[in-house]
């Protein structure tokens, strides 16, 4: 969240940032009733799972909700080597002493922040087990290494994100984990919403260009089954719009933002460029 004081660029700050009065709201365009659902879940402090493809607004939504609900947000990007120590904390050597340092999850639990575990599926299974006790009625975090437990702050809430693509065939969350969450499905926004997003994210972009970008993006998404791991995301469209705004011609902007990053397959790239050129032909 943007604050006037703390957002000094290039200076580290604590991961738990209490919201300030003069924070600016992050921009988010609701697609359906996700805001209401999240608010309801928050009222009951139920854990939430955000499901959807990459680049469709999950993280932005959460930032927005955290702002609305005036809670600090702690984000952890999960990866294959993420262990429970990375989440809960570890002993570090400082001077001649061994000091315990809380991990981000523990900090969030103590401070009553919203903890966001992004792409939880990637993490090692010993880390997902940690959240089991946090996500049921116990709301308790166990720190095995210290032999202690913490009952979560009453404002603590856990949110995870989850991208159902085929790479999760083997690496899926156990059903017992999934059932502990309220799940909100995200998908790429409807045409008019996506256009609005583009216009808001890239001020100064001509409306016509936004129309064309969204139309081209929607058509490219139809190619997903032909070998793309991920379809064209809204984020890619925003990048393209930014590049156009910066002075690049539309076809090149689309190529570098929408086509090149997604695929190395020559024919797929050709098909996508055909779509782009059909929409942007001079």
């Amino acid at each position: 969240m943007k604050t006037a004081v703390n957002r000094i660029r290039g200076v580290e700050r604590d991961i738990v940032q209490m919201p300030q009065a003069d924070d600016i709201a992050p921009y988010y365009e609701p697609q359906g009733n996700e805001v209401a659902i999240f608010e309801a879940a928050f009222r009951k402090r139920l854990p939430v799972m955000l499901k959807g493809p990459t680049g469709c607004g999950k993280t932005r939504f959460l930032e927005y909700m955290a702002f609305q609900l005036k809670r600090p947000l702690v984000t952890v990007s999960c990866h294959e080597d993420l262990t429970s120590s990375d989440l809960v904390g570890r002993f570090l050597l400082e001077g001649s002493e061994t000091v315990w340092q809380d991990g981000p999850l523990t900090r969030a639990v103590k401070a009553g922040a919203i903890c966001y575990l992004d792409e939880i599926v990637e993490a090692r299974t010993d880390s997902t087990v940690v959240i089991h006790s946090l996500t049921d009625h116990r709301r308790r975090l166990t720190i095995e290494k210290k032999g202690q437990e913490i009952d979560a702050h009453e404002d603590f809430m856990l949110v995870i994100s989850y991208n159902p693509g085929y790479q999760t065939v083997l690496k899926d969350l156990k059903p017992s984990t999934k059932q502990r969450f309220i799940a909100i499905n995200f998908d790429f926004p409807a045409e008019d919403v996506e256009r609005k997003i583009l216009v808001n994210e890239v001020p100064g972009i001509p409306v016509e260009i936004a129309h064309q970008l969204v139309a081209a993006g929607r058509k490219s998404r139809l190619l997903k089954d032909h070998g793309l791991e991920e379809a064209t995301s809204t984020r890619a469209l925003v990048y393209a719009a930014n590049m156009i705004n910066a002075g690049l011609d539309p076809v090149t902007a689309c190529q570098v933002a929408m086509v090149n990053p997604i695929t190395d397959d020559i024919e797929l790239a050709e098909a996508m460029m055909e779509i782009v050129q059909a929409h942007f032909a001079a």
Binding site: L223, H226, E267, L268, E270, A271
Partner: peptide, 13 residues
């Protein structure tokens, strides 16, 4: 050699 591309274009449009 290119009928995959043509098939994709048909799919899309």
């Amino acid at each position: 050699d290119r009928n995959r591309l043509l098939g994709m274009l048909l799919d899309v449009w």
